[in-house]
Write a protein that binds this DNA or RNA. Structure first.
Lengths: 201, 201
DNA sequence: CGGCGGATCTGACAAATGTCATGGTCCGCC
DNA sequence: GGCGGACCATGACATTTGTCAGATCCGCCG
């Protein structure tokens, strides 16, 4: 019997997953939560065989949670499930020690298959998302460029960004300009959007 | 037996919903799709008793689809299910003829309840979302302000927006400025974000 | 060592954006 | 008819943002 931990922020969807997986022979949902930090705590306490983590979660996002679970509950294999096929997410998930990565665009039947495969020591990477991630170049932005982009993401004016990062306004403009050029965007806001789509932000 | 149409873009989630609702006595899923336009077509062809529509869908969003289904398949009661509790969405859903509105934060058990309630001629509005929508003021933007905001949402420069809308650049700047003021934002991009959060965009 | 490349920072200048005063049109209302 | 208010539209001016050339520092390789 595979003991499963389920973390997914939308209660309704989580309940549906329980219904789906509860019908699978050999799989037992031993814990569920809608928060990333809760997921880490439950993984430590319940010691499940496999943890299914959504990426969008309050408290701690699924990737962070995956990293901590891999470290603090080593016996627990992690599968990331996500609705957004951001290439950068897959890369980060692998770095965080995840052994499965599945997009929500897949038919429902794959989920149980992946759980069993990962439980048996295998790995599973969504082929479409893997292709995207491998085609895609790595994030070309420097740390400072990422900092400024992140700070600009909320629509903050340069003056505030400069204050937050303890930089001159000219410098902030420079980093943003550089990021815009590298991402082939028309302005900083299009750059933010693009970086976010790539999962870099 | 309640004949149900299910429209939700994430295949995996849709499958889980089928598993959840399939276990419910008296409910039968007669059709499912991941596209809004498909949902309208299926509603016409299959004449289900109730249609569950997610808002985020390709082809046609759930609110548009709700409106068309109410018109083209009058016997079909529409329930909107959404992950984002945008106040404006609820208002638009009501205007589109929806008879149920449920956030994905609800426990799984409510879904079947709502379906039965709506099928029996009742209505169901998520209490939390209703409270938000009633607290919230209506969208204060004029049609032209909304047009320009929408056009600006992708990060397009004023010059392009002006060309698209056949306006002078000064006029476009004026509308955007007005929208920014009304939304108490710092610049157009923060305004876009805010309008989107409200479900106005 | 010396030179090269890349990252970090800055100010000056050019371009885009935000603000304001203004005028026109339409519509409801007294 | 005349008035007030809301919306639409514009150009001029102030502010913010984007671009560029350059300075400094540091690791790396010949």
């Amino acid at each position: 019997m595979i003991r499963l931990l389920l973390a997914e922020d939308h209660h309704l969807v989580r309940g549906a997953f329980v219904a789906l997986l509860g019908a699978e022979p050999g799989i037992e949902v031993v814990g569920e939560t809608g928060r990333g930090d809760e997921a880490v705590r439950l993984a430590r306490e319940l010691r499940p065989d496999v943890a299914i983590l959504d990426i969008d979660m309050p408290g701690l996002d699924g990737l962070e949670a995956a990293e901590r679970i891999s470290r603090e509950a080593p016996g627990c294999r992690v599968v990331i499930v996500t609705g957004h096929g951001r290439p950068g997410y897959l890369r980060r998930a692998m770095a965080a020690g995840a052994r499965g990565f599945v997009g929500k665009d897949n038919p429902a039947s794959v989920l149980a298959t992946v759980i069993r495969q990962v439980h048996d020591g295998g790995r599973y990477i969504d082929p479409d998302l893997a292709a995207d991630a491998l085609t895609m170049r790595e994030c070309p932005l420097t740390p400072r460029e990422l900092d400024t982009l992140r700070a600009a993401a909320g629509g903050a004016p340069v003056s505030r960004i400069a204050r937050e990062l303890h930089l001159s306004e000219g410098t902030v403009r420079n980093y943003l300009s550089s990021a815009v050029t590298k991402l082939e965007a028309e302005n900083r806001h299009a750059a933010v959007r693009r970086a976010r789509d790539m999962g870099w932000l």
